[in-house]
């Protein structure tokens, strides 16, 4: 009995965790090349979810098309925030201003969505939410299987892209040293744009898959993003492997806290862990120590 509960919570935790990874990976990629945080990432998640919802309903239950729509909406939003906020502010060279500007964008988008879509949660039922499998006392929906499959595929593709393609290598070069990338003959601005578009597409897609699991309101992304921030720090900012590990860890913490403690304590446990990490291991789970060059 207990073993079944543990197994069940482990499954729930991994489903949730792989979604968090999708959202957090975007943040960490942007941080890697730009050393900036896009606070509006949360709202790209929400807008992706709404895009998927409306496309699915317009097309009579084509959830997978909804995911594609969310991906495209996310990419478009990423492009937009780069040309309106990140690119102009990069020239000013202040490290805090872009973050503050995206906080403004986030507050604006959230409340625009609130005005547009209202505060009442949308029931995001996909054709796969009802199909339930039972294996050895545990049960999971086809929706969860899709979430894990799509997340794992995306993460694997992204990983392969970063490791094996020229562009991916260039991205990592920019993340380490902007001048080196210039030597490779690549315009860093193009790479930054590419990174933000990819990251935001991941956010949109993450939204389309999160919404059926959580409740879809204008604040859906905001509730996820604070955990994504925690994940990114626990994993080590800019560190892809660390982010994946931390994402799954937070997913598991969340499901087990719900089972054995109290759902109200989730944020406290997650952020308690975050503050402990900051105090004792600020470079993240998998650390690559870098000393500042003066």
């Amino acid at each position: 009995m207990t073993a079944t509960i543990v197994a069940q919570q482990a499954i729930n935790g991994i489903v949730l965790g792989s979604l968090y990874v999708l959202v957090a990976l975007g943040l960490t990629l942007i941080y890697g090349v730009l050393v900036q945080i896009n606070f509006a990432h949360a709202d790209f998640v929400t807008l992706g979810a709404f895009a998927a919802y409306f496309v699915m309903h317009a097309l009579g239950g084509q959830y997978l098309l909804g995911i594609v729509a969310a991906l495209l909406v996310g990419a478009a939003l990423g492009w937009a925030i780069n040309i309106t906020v990140f690119a102009p502010l990069r020239r000013k060279g202040n490290e805090l201003l872009p973050l503050i500007a995206t906080i403004g964008v986030s507050v604006m988008l959230q409340n625009a969505m609130l005005a547009w879509f209202g505060p009442v949660p949308y029931a995001f039922e996909t054709p796969y939410s009802q199909k339930v499998f039972r294996v050895a006392g545990t049960f999971f929906t086809l929706q969860s299987v899709i979430i894990i499959a799509v997340s794992a595929t995306t993460i694997a593709l992204l990983y392969a892209f970063m490791k094996f393609t020229f562009l991916g290598k260039a991205l990592r070069a920019v993340a380490q040293d902007r001048e080196t990338a210039g030597l490779m003959g690549i315009n860093p601005n193009t790479l930054i744009m590419l990174t933000i578009v990819i990251s935001s597409a991941l956010a949109g897609m993450g939204g389309a898959m999160l919404a059926p699991v959580l409740v879809l309101t204008p604040f859906a992304g905001a509730s996820v993003i604070v955990k994504a921030f925690a994940i990114v720090i626990i994993g080590g900012f800019g560190n892809v492997e660390g982010t994946i590990l931390a994402g799954l860890l937070v997913g598991l913490i969340e499901s087990f806290t719900t089972q054995y403690l109290d759902p109200g304590l989730i944020d406290i446990v997650v952020f308690g862990l975050l503050l402990l990490m900051l105090a004792f291991r600020p470079t993240g789970l998998i650390s690559e120590r870098r000393e500042e060059n003066v």
Partner: peptide, 9 residues
């Protein structure tokens, strides 16, 4: 940024 996130947390 780390400080921003820590204070948000």
């Amino acid at each position: 940024h780390y400080l921003a996130i820590a204070s948000l947390g």
